[in-house]
Design a protein around this nucleic acid. Structure first.
Length: 446
RNA sequence: GUGGUUGUAGCUCAGUUGGUUAGAGCGCCGGUUUGUGGUACCGGAGGUCGCGGGUUCGAAUCCCGUCAGCCACCCCA
């Protein structure tokens, strides 16, 4: 026998989890589309040179790569941004700009696993390219906000910052050259203590006074308007720094105009994001009840998406929802739907001689968009109801020879155990209408 | 990739200084006279003690390796 097993970091998804994932994907799709983002897809495999072009050691190490049957060096995509860059460079001509797309797909990274971190996972990206307008920055924040709301999370925080502000402040502090190291260190705030971060900064040769000022800057918090004011003094006369602040101010205003409740979107000067291709807005979002999970939706603005693949400059802004991390978080908080079935109605098979009637009823329901599970054997009622309860069908429809004779049916709500008698007089479409109406009620309540 | 930690029934775990047929609760299946689940009672199935090797008269228990989970570093979704 071969031992059935899965590779480290790769998982099977049982119905309960698969249903939850599909549900989140549906929500994301709906929100992205509501802003006009169009779907695209790209291959899982790319020429190795496409993927390694960015050339950071870190991504190279994590890349799944091999030689294909035609002796080509190929790699599996480790994110959706690089394939999108290639895609954009290849198709700009026919896309028209600005172009907005969403892409929800599996990516692979051969890194070590941890809670909510796997080697195979899904990302749900959306980006707007071909414009530098701050309106697109604002829209990006709004999409993230709407998405988290639509998923049903009521307590979350979207943290914003601007790379240009950081650059400006570092300029003023005479630390422009150490930017990468400094930002990387500051990014750890929130996870690591400020002492630890201070030590790391000292290790990079940052002067004690500068460290103090950086830590003070990074720990700024409170109403966005106040944080902006504080940052203004730190930025001083730095042009780039002022530009960053202007961008943030615009977003803060816009978010309020769009009706986002206060406190959901905040400024956090410690957010830097490790990725060096961000050049303007950077954003991360956290579940308030589970901050240790890390950011579940992150993104930002970049000057040039596809510089490696085309001479045409393609500025853009976007973000990515980490589906599997979010699912892990929702599961931990007990917020995931628990049903193991997509069928709202469980149709009990009870009177063997009425098979034809059952099939007619099931078909009438399905044509009205109601999913029906028809039990395949005329077994004891108790057995069938037990299964219906375990699977989480909200409604069971019971018809035995008595009901058929009387032209009635019993609609049982599994959650409460209450039954309701329906009259249909042998007309399947009448019964289907009544059941569909009851199911619609159940749906609207969840 | 580095360091730490865990691995006994479907799930949560117990298993005494290594000693014979490895246990519990929950879950699962069947039954409690033929049409109503999540409650009660009765019965039942189910375990290569993650896997491989070693030490020993004897290993779930000690040692080594390996695979997998979790945590930290790193990086990130």
């Amino acid at each position: 026998m071969i031992t059935p097993r899965t590779l480290k970091g790769f998982r099977d998804h049982l119905p309960a989890q698969a249903l939850a994932r599909e549900w989140v994907l549906d929500v994301a799709r709906r929100v992205y589309r509501s802003y006009g983002f169009a779907p695209i897809d790209t291959p899982a495999l790319e020429y190795l040179e496409i993927l390694t072009g960015k050339g950071s050691d870190e991504t190279d190490k994590q890349l799944y790569r091999f030689t294909d049957h035609g002796n080509r060096d190929v790699g599996m995509r480790f994110d959706l941004t690089v394939p999108f860059a290639r895609f954009a460079a290849q198709h700009v001509g026919s896309l028209g700009l600005p172009f907005k797309r969403y892409h929800m797909a599996t990516v692979w990274r051969g890194e070590n696993t941890q809670r909510g971190r796997y080697r195979e996972f899904m990302q749900c990206d959306f980006d707007t390219i071909g414009t530098t307008s701050p309106v697109s920055d604002l829209e990006t924040v709004l999409v993230v906000h709407d998405l988290l709301v639509a998923i049903g999370i009521d307590r979350f925080t979207i943290r914003l910052n601007d790379r240009r502000t950081l650059t400006g402040i570092l300029e003023q502090a005479g630390l422009a050259e150490k930017q990468t190291d400094v930002l990387r260190a500051l990014d750890k705030l929130g996870k690591a203590s400020s002492e630890a971060v201070g030590k790391e900064l000292a290790g990079h040769g940052v002067a004690p006074e500068a460290i103090e000022r950086l830590l003070a800057m990074a720990s700024l918090a409170g109403p966005p308007q106040e944080v902006l004011k504080e940052l203004e003094t730190l930025v001083g006369e730095s042009e780039i720094g002022k530009a960053g602040l202007a961008g943030l101010a615009k977003i803060v205003d816009g978010v309020a105009s769009a009706g986002v409740p206060e406190g959901r979107v905040v400024l956090d000067p410690s957010i830097a994001r490790g990725l060096d291709y961000y050049t303007g807005l950077v954003l991360e979002s956290f579940l308030d009840e589970l901050p240790s999970l890390g950011s579940i939706c992150s993104g930002g603005r970049y000057d040039n998406l596809a510089g490696l693949y085309t001479k045409q400059p393609l500025p853009g802004v976007g973000a990515s929802l980490g589906l599997d991390r979010l699912i892990a978080g929702l599961e931990e908080l007990g917020r995931l739907p628990t049903a193991e079935t997509p069928a709202e109605v469980f149709l009990v098979f009870f009177a063997d001689e009425h098979l034809g009637d059952y099939l007619r009823i099931a078909s009438a329901l399905r044509s009205r968009g109601v999913a029906v599970e028809f039990y395949p054997e005329a077994k004891k009622l108790g057995v069938q109801l037990k299964l219906a309860a375990k699977r989480g069908h909200p409604v069971a429809l019971i018809l035995g020879s008595d009901e058929f004779a009387a032209g009635k049916a019993q609609l049982k709500r599994m959650a409460s155990g209450e039954s309701e008698e329906l009259t249909w007089g042998g007309d399947a479409s009448v019964l289907a209408e009544a059941v569909a109406a009851a199911v619609a009620l159940v749906r609207s309540r969840t």
